[in-house]
Amino acid sequence: MKTPYYDYLSYALTYFYYRSLDGEKMEDIKVFHNEKVEEIRKTTVAGEVYQAIKRINRDNSQSAEMIVCTGYQEAMEIV
């Protein structure tokens, strides 16, 4: 299973998009230090991992064991 990590700009642009929808003011972002951008990054990675796992055993018709090797524990806790 391979889960691509997007560049940080993708997460920041998503954050700016949703801020603009809410009519909120734009602000500077410190890489890996903005709490809301980190939440977007964590949930995006968790979603990608979940989709990869579901592709292995789509209909749960057979027993399957998944072994995921990652250092990103926060994303795995969501999955």
Rank of each mutant, 00 (worst) to 15 (best):
K54L: 13
Y17A: 05
S20M: 08
T70R: 09
E39L: 00
V68M: 10
L13S: 03
M1R: 02
R41D: 00
M1I: 10
I56N: 12
I56K: 15
E39G: 01
D28N: 04
V49W: 03
Q51T: 03
G71L: 13
S20C: 04
I53S: 12
L13D: 04
Y72R: 15
E27L: 03
H33C: 10
Q51L: 09
K42I: 12
R55T: 07
R55V: 10
R58Q: 14
D22S: 14
L9F: 09
T3V: 13
T3D: 07
I40W: 00
T44F: 14
E27W: 03
M66E: 13
D7P: 00
V49M: 08
V45Y: 15
N57F: 02
K42T: 06
G23L: 02
E77M: 09
F16R: 03
S61D: 14
S10M: 09
Y6E: 10
R55A: 14
S61C: 02
V79C: 10
Y5I: 06
R19S: 01
Y17W: 06
E65C: 08
P4E: 12
F16K: 10
T3W: 11
M26E: 03
E77V: 04
A46E: 01
E65H: 10
E27H: 05
F32Y: 15
T3S: 15
Y18A: 01
K42A: 00
S10K: 01
T14I: 00
N57I: 04
Q73G: 05
G71V: 09
Y6H: 06
K2R: 14
C69V: 13
A64W: 02
R55E: 15
Y72Q: 12
E65F: 05
E39I: 01
E38S: 07
K54E: 14
V37S: 02
Y15P: 04
I40H: 03
E27C: 08
V31N: 08
E74V: 01
L21Q: 10
T43E: 11
N60E: 13
Q62D: 07
K36H: 11
T70A: 12
Y50A: 14
Y50D: 07
G71Q: 14
E74N: 14
Y50T: 12
M76P: 00
P4R: 09
L21F: 06
Y5S: 10
Q73N: 13
L21Y: 05
V68K: 13
A46C: 01
Y72L: 08
Y15H: 05
Y17D: 07
A52L: 13
I40K: 02
F32N: 15
E38K: 12
E38M: 06
I29G: 04
F32S: 14
E35C: 05
Y72W: 07
Q62W: 07
T43L: 13
M1E: 11
N34W: 02
Y15I: 00
